[in-house]
Amino acid sequence: MSAVLGATTRANLKPTIPIWIVTILAVVVAFAVSTPFRTGTNASSLLLGMAPLLLVAAGQGIVILTGGIDLSVGSVVSLATVITASSLGDGSGTLNVALVVVAGVVIGTANGVGVAAGINPLVMTLATMGIVKGGALLIMDSPGGTVPASLLEGLTWSFGSVPLTFLISLGVVVVAWLLTSETRFGHTLYAVGHSGIGARRAALRTNRTLIVAYALSGLLASLGGLVLVGRVFSGDPLIGDAFSLDSITAVLLGGIAVVGGRGALLGIIPGVLLLALVDNLLNLAGVFSYYQYITKGMILIVALALYNAAGGELKIGGVRLLPGRGSKPDAGAPA
């Protein structure tokens, strides 16, 4: 094992073990108690629903590892569905896919260039979020359009109950995890995430790393939109809005530190699965859908508290709730 994965890679995987366990337990329990959960159609719809968020969250995770954030992914997802459902070229869908890829990379690169030039990531991606959303609405002002038949066939292909797009998305997350943890680019990414100034001082290619990170986020978001069409069969200029925040939630659930430089992209898999399970189970139980938001919000807070407890110690109002590994006294300014 030690020759295969680096020490930091292993160290970053360790904190994700609890979320894997919780998620797997949740699946087992759901499987045991819920008859509708066991059906093939449900499994298929659960996995199909996960595919877009897996892709978008993988990109978001890369950006968050640099200590940044990408708010524009939601708009990029929408734009991608709109492009996919437009009548273009010979109708085979090749041109649609090519345009989706190009749009994602271009928007992401623009974000990266802005951030590398010193614009705050929140501000930069907030701006592109608006611009891209407007663009998508200009192309298609209401849900509709027709998806090229051959393309749709590919997007909805499945092996039994397991959709092809789910498998591909899963593969993409694994590749992205290797890219961020087992390559030179990855080490630089973590270094930048810990301290951009430090990385610059160490003569690392800080700007290039940032640009590539945001470009990947843009690309993965647009591919997420493409995959999403396999579930909704049409373009929708507003469908992606929820993805911005959902992808951040999934990344944080997966144990990636919001300040950057810590965590493993692989943690996104249980993170996304847990979110999908909440939706799926509450739907099956016939609970009013607004409760899904409340449940997900509460899960996020509990999960982050547990991650904190694993690293330092969990304290609320000076009362220690959980003992930490090493006590880090807060040596802040005694004012």
Binding site: A7, T8, A11, T183, R184, H187, T188, Y190, H194
Partner: peptide, 24 residues
């Protein structure tokens, strides 16, 4: 130094040796 990386990773940062498929 970057505390989120190991001693070895810090020392070779930016010029980490790679294998045939580009992984560390």
């Amino acid at each position: 130094l970057f505390p989120n990386l190991t001693v070895g990773e810090n020392i070779t940062l930016g010029r980490t040796p790679r294998n045939r498929i580009g992984l560390t």
